[in-house]
């Protein structure tokens, strides 16, 4: 089926099976490989993107449900020459190791902070459920805290 939606600010149309998960449309039809495949069952969060501003796990969202939606991927989070504050904090805290899960982690965190700029530790723990096999969680927490208003850790 033909689907029209907005991806990273651009109107796009793709033709794909109705049940194709958004993840594979992004990666294979649109060439946006920054969004990763980790589990295929919404368990790990490596495929997290924003749909209409909300974090979703693209590996389980059928493309048929996205007619007219606005989607943001890691590639569209910020211009390359003007990174998003979360990306800046990620570099400052040297968060990624292998980095494979970090696109999804950054998308999840940027969505959280957009609605709740100063989350408590409990809120962070409840909202950021992405899996990282390298074990970067301590730095993820540190980077989120550095972005709190008044923490002085961001340029944003």
């Amino acid at each position: 089926m033909a689907i029209s939606f907005v991806v990273n600010g651009e109107a796009r149309s793709v033709d794909a099976d109705a049940d194709t998960p958004l993840l594979w449309v992004l990666r294979e039809n649109l060439g946006l490989t920054g969004t990763k495949f980790g589990c295929g069952i919404s368990a790990c969060g490596a495929c997290t993107v924003h749909v209409n501003g909300a974090p979703v796990r693209a590996c389980v969202v059928p493309i048929a449900t996205l007619q007219g939606a606005s989607i943001t991927t890691i590639e569209g989070l910020a211009p390359q020459d003007a990174p998003h504050p979360v990306q800046i904090a990620w570099i400052a805290q040297q968060v990624p190791q292998c980095g494979y899960c970090q696109s999804g982690m950054i998308m999840a965190v940027s969505a959280l902070l957009a609605h709740n700029p100063n989350p408590s530790d409990e809120e962070i723990a409840a909202q950021i459920t992405n899996l990282c096999r390298c074990g970067t969680y301590e730095r993820v927490r540190r980077a989120i805290r550095s972005l709190a208003p008044g923490a002085g850790g961001s340029h944003g």
């Binding site: 990174p83 570099i91 990624p96 980095g99």
Partner: peptide, 23 residues
Amino acid sequence: TSVQRVDIPAKVNGTARYGLDVV
């Protein structure tokens, strides 16, 4: 010294190309 890792910038903006990303 804690020199920043050279591989990290590409890992925060989706441009790092893993095996899965080869086209």
